[in-house]
Every structure is written in C-alpha cells, then in structure tokens.
Design a binder for these strands. Structure first.
Lengths: 295, 295
DNA sequence: TAAATATTAAAACAAATGGATCATTGTTTT
DNA sequence: AAAACAATGATCCATTTGTTTTAATATTTA
C-alpha cells in the first residue's frame, strides 16, 4: 500500500512549507490515496474537511496544472494494483531506459507472466484437470481454432498426433475445414479455441457439432464469450496485453498443460507413443543437431 | 482479478438476455472492473465503444436506480483492494492438492510464468529491440518454423500479414514450403524459429537463405543451437517444462513482443493497416459476438 | 498600531457529467 | 407485407464538477 511513490515523497517534502489548510488537504491525500482516485474533488474536499478550492491549490503548489493531474496519478496507482509492480517498473527505468521500445517489451512480458501465473489459482486448475479428464474419455477429439486461435488449435493437434490418433484438426484449404465433422458421432468431443474477436466460422462449426450431439470443450477469453453458453467445459484465459494485439501465450500455455495432463493420465501409453514417434522421425532423419554440410 | 463478486455474477447471469449493445457494455465492465471506478461514465462508454446512454440502460437492466450505483459498487471493490487476495493464495495450498494432476498443472504454469518473466532482463530485452529494428529495416521477411515451431512462425506471419505485406510464410503442402526463397534477394531477411529437436528442413532452408545473402534472425533455445552460428540476431528462450514436452509459450511471447515492437516503430502506418484489415474483415462478416441463429 | 501580505471562505463560472426524451432503425410477429 | 415491438443513436436538460475570481480574514512586518 504505502509503496515508494514519487508523488507521495514530494508531498511529504513540501508539507512543512504549506499553509494550514493545504496541510490538512495533503494529510488526507497521504492517508487515503485510493479515495483520490475514487471520488470527486468536492467529495474529497468534504472528506478532508477543506474547501474544494484548496484541492486545486494543492495541485498547483505541487507543480501540477490542475487537480486532475493528481487524480490521474492515483488512478494509475490503483490500476497497477499495489503489488509492488510499480516499484519494479521504476527501478528498471533507471537502467534500461536506454533502448527505445524496451519498456514496451518489458511491460508486455511482465503482463504475460502474470496472466499465466493467474492460471495457478484453484479454479482454473480445477477446470484444467476436469477438461483433461473429459478429453481423455473421448473417443475422438476434433480441434477447432481459426485465425489467431489457429496457433493454439494447431499446437494441441500436433502434440496429440504424437501421442496417438484420436485428434482431428478441423482445418483445411478452400473452406473444407469443417468436413471432418460429417461423420462425427455423439461420443466424440470438439475442442474449440476462440478469443475476441470471435471468428464466425468457429462459432458456426461449434454450434453444428453441438447439434450433432458432441460435447463442446472450449478455451476462450471470458465468461460471456459466445462459446461459454454451449460448452460442457470451459477454460478462461486472459488475452489482454500492453499492445494493439491480443495475446495467445496464456491460451497456448493452457494447451500445453492439457496435453501434459492427458499424457500423464495414461503415462505408459503416452511414453510408448512418443517412443514410436521418435523412431519414426529418426528414420526419416527429420531432426538434426548440426547444420547440413554445404555442397 | 477473478474475484467472487456478486455483481459480476449477476451480470454474467443476465448477459444472455441483453441486447448487443448492452452486452458490449457489460463485457467491458466485466473485463475492466477497475476502470468503472476510475473514469466517468462517458469515458467508460467511449472505452467500451458504446453510447453513454447504454451505460445508464445497463444499470437499469441490472436493477439499479442509476449508473452511479454501479460505480459505487466497483469503487467499494477497489477500496477492499487486494486484501482477500493473499488469503486466497494461501487457501489453495490447503485445498488444491485434491485433484490429481492439478499439482502438475500448477508446476508447469508456474514455470512458464517464470520463464517469460526471465525475458524481462536487460539482455533479452536488448536482443528483442535489436531484432525488431532489423526486421523493420528489411524489405521482406521470410518466416520459417516447422513442426512444433510452426506455432510461432504462423503467429508471426499472421500478425505481420495484418500489418502489411512484407511477410512470407515458408510453408506449404507437398514440400513446397521453401519455394518462396527462389527469388529471395540479399536485402531481405528470414526469421527462423527452431527449438530442440531441430528440424532438419529448417536448418537446410536457413543455410540456403544464408548462402543467398539473406540476414538470418532466429528464435531458438540455446547458445549452442545450430542456428546460433549462422544468425545475425538471435533471441534465446526457455523451452523446458515440467512435462515430456518442450514449451513454446515463451517463444510465442517473444513473437508477440516482436510484432508489437515492429508495429510501434511505425505506429501510424500500423494503425492504418489494422484499420484497413478491420474494415476488410468486417465486410466479410468474419467475426461475431454471438452464436449464429440455428436454422 | 497601521500597512502590507498571505491565507481562507464564498460565490460565480464554464465545462463535463449522468439522465431523459424522442426519432430512427432493425427485428419479430401477425 | 404490414404492424408491433424492441433496440439504438442523437439531442436536450438539470446537476455536478473543477476552476477562477472576489471578498473577508488572519498573519506578518514596519
């Protein structure tokens, strides 16, 4: 709460030179920083027991142009969430302000890290295991994810194809992606990945599968995603990032965890399948540890 | 973040019965609860992309007398702050050992989070910005990533294709993936993604590109990766995870950061391109917020 | 003490906010 | 197809907001 806050420091530094009323206002601000962000200036003045104008004057004394600057500052503090994050950011500004853009990168990566960490909460964990169990029970798993979500869908399918042959990727050229559903049977499931903006084709295919009696398991970004309503299991993951684009890293992490849990549920079989895949790929000389000899 | 909040629950419960605009407003409120407390109604409406009146209507639909009731509620939530947060974290150790597999999931996610956080160090940040600058300077960017690395390659190409037409994905059916390099010129670059086990085809194509005089930028997993030697810029990211499989989440995060940095380097152009893409996709009705009507 | 100055309270103001109304548009029902 | 209905966007209004100005009061200085 009372983290090192430059504005706070400044107020304290100037405190002694203030008039009585200004001190009273400043004292309240120091003691109730969140209120500054949450209530109007007049309300704050009332709470602090000073005239509204005093707050304006306080802002000027502190070198701001107006009261709103103070409020903006404290709003930003609230947004950062008081978790010591702000302190870290400031610390690094000293050393890394050098390269332009590195602060953007820093913010993004920090945010991603936190979003993945958020999946460690009990509820998401429970959802993960529940979905893994459901996937394990399915005869076949259709995997559906278009546009940006293709990343996750493809990853899941790729790993699953190493583990066995229960996975079908609903994707293909010339709009043939959904064709595999033609012979879908009710004891199969479809894993749908979709984040905002939701691809219409994904929703249509998901609805179709639902109508065919397949269970819908989805990875999406919100409780009010169109997928949430028709899904038997849902995992929610953050997609906000400090950039124009939505992030898929948490969703990919979810996919990786699901694959692992699935493999763990039948460890011996998984190991055998992976061994089998290894042999196959070794035969084909798919992999190498060194650059090919130049000819 | 995902606190248990009665109002939140209520919004979710009533969500399906709301009109499109109300849903859009509600969605924003759900995703940015702090903002409700921090900004004015009009500002919030602007952020949510709805008319100010819609926020008032949302309040009424939720059974409140006016919008201020909603704001008051979220202000109260902010005031409570992260008090209950620490408690929750502690709580999980007690209860979460329950579901089998949830500890695996927990470890994996924790590890991933840390690995992405590790990219926040000065050196990786510097490598990121350096590579972004090199990418920005290139006439054309060939993107190469096979097998598991396809995830990253495709993501990068997908985002770049929204931003312009400088990106070419070296992938295709029947082994035609490398054909695009036929006309490659020395002022172009190739972004190679490869992690252990390194796909031979990737290495071969990278070597070919190098021979043709293209700059090699790579995302890989170690200083002794076969790519490291032939690359002009290299970003290293962790791939270890508490499972059989290697993780691609950090690599994907790197790709996301690169895309963002690239976009930021020429913000106006990027924004214009994205707007253009939006218009295009809107025309094609690519996206939707609701399930298609059943026929 | 009287003058000068700084501080405070009160009032006035323009700009913004939240809310209500009504015409228009889109959707469903008949 | 027409009518009924709900949803939406635009406009308007009374309040409230942050700020400035003015007058009164306290404090300091000569």
């Amino acid at each position: 709460m009372s983290q090192s806050d430059p504005l706070r420091e400044q107020i304290i530094a100037q405190f002694d030179g203030m008039s009585a009323q200004l001190q009273q206002a400043a004292r309240y601000v120091l003691e109730h920083p969140e209120e500054v962000a949450l209530v109007s200036m007049r309300e704050l003045a009332r709470l602090a027991g000073v005239q509204p104008a005093t707050m304006t004057r306080l802002a000027k004394v502190l070198g701001f142009q107006g009261y709103n600057d103070i409020r903006t500052h404290y709003a930003e503090t609230v947004r950062r969430g008081n978790d010591g994050f702000a302190a870290k950011v400031r610390q690094r500004d000293v050393e890394a302000a050098s390269t332009p853009g590195s602060d953007i990168a820093y913010h993004m990566l920090h945010g991603l890290s936190a979003q993945i960490a958020a999946l460690c909460e009990p509820e998401p964990l429970h959802r993960l295991t529940a979905m893994a169990n459901r996937l394990a029970a399915a005869k076949k798993v259709y995997v559906l994810g278009l546009r940006s979500s293709h990343v996750v869908a493809w990853h899941f399918h790729y790993v699953m194809s190493l583990l066995g042959e229960r996975s079908v990727h609903l994707d293909g050229p010339a709009g043939t992606g959904g064709d595999a559903l033609i012979r879908a049977k009710p004891d199969e499931v479809v894993l749908v990945i979709s984040i905002k903006p939701y691809a219409l084709d994904t929703l249509t295919l998901a609805q179709l599968a639902k109508d065919k009696g397949l269970a819908i398991l989805s990875i999406t970004d919100s409780e009010v995603s169109p997928l949430a309503g028709i899904s038997d299991h849902t995992i929610y993951c953050a997609t906000e990032s400090y950039s124009f684009f939505h992030t898929l890293a948490p969703a990919l992490a979810v996919s990786e965890v699901l694959c692992t849990l699935l493999a763990e549920l039948d460890r011996p079989t998984a190991l055998k399948a992976l061994q089998h895949a290894d042999d196959h790929l070794l035969h084909l000389k798919t992999y190498s540890n060194t650059l090919p000899r130049r000819e």
